[in-house]
Amino acid sequence: MLSLRSLLALLFLTSLSLTVSAQTPTPPDKPAFVGAVAKKARYRAVYQLDSDDPKLIKQTLRNMKNALADPRLLGKLQLELVVFGGGTDVFRKSQPYEAELRALQQQGVLLAQCQNTMKERQISPDELFPFISYVPTGNGELIIRQQQGWALVHP
């Protein structure tokens, strides 16, 4: 006859075995998860950039490029980049982002600079790329876009 201690040990080992078997990979006859299906005709997202950290700027531009290349969203996606605060660096002529910004713009991305930031930081439009657009406030643009149903992305 099994002692209580042996019985508990056996139950514990059995439960471990069940846990391991429950974590085995999906059998080949079952499809793997491939992500959400894009059933809508149009998707819109506004990206917020308010940091001058070069890593974050590059990450934001890369994220936008990746979203535009997602096969589920091809031909269905409209993006806007709203820049304010330190994020204004991405639009400065003195920074190395012009080629990436032009490539995004050629894919239909709206590039919007906050005029409030320019006023507060005394930034002249001459310091920024001539192909960008302007909005009165970055936060106002985000609020309006979100209420219009745009997804808000803040990398």
Rank of each mutant, 00 (worst) to 15 (best):
R44D: 09
R92H: 12
P71N: 05
S21W: 14
T117F: 07
Q59G: 11
Q146A: 01
Q115H: 10
I123G: 04
G85A: 13
D53R: 08
R72W: 01
E98Q: 15
K65A: 14
V34C: 00
E100N: 04
L7C: 09
A151V: 07
Q106M: 07
K30F: 13
A103V: 06
K40R: 14
Q107N: 09
V109N: 00
K39L: 12
K55E: 14
K55R: 14
L4R: 12
P130K: 13
V20M: 11
Q78K: 15
R42L: 14
L49D: 03
P155M: 05
L2Y: 13
Q59D: 03
Y97I: 05
L68H: 00
V37Y: 11
A36D: 05
D29H: 14
A22S: 15
F12D: 00
Q146Y: 04
W150I: 03
G138V: 00
W150H: 03
L77G: 07
L7R: 12
P125D: 00
P155Y: 08
F131S: 06
R42V: 11
P25L: 00
A32R: 11
T137S: 07
M1E: 12
T26F: 03
P71R: 03
G35P: 07
E127W: 03
L81F: 01
Q122Y: 02
K76L: 13
T137N: 04
S21D: 09
D70V: 00
S124H: 08
L111A: 05
I57S: 03
Q48K: 09
E98C: 09
E120M: 13
P25C: 03
L77I: 15
D29T: 09
I57M: 11
L74Q: 15
G149E: 04
L16G: 11
L79N: 07
Q48A: 00
V34M: 04
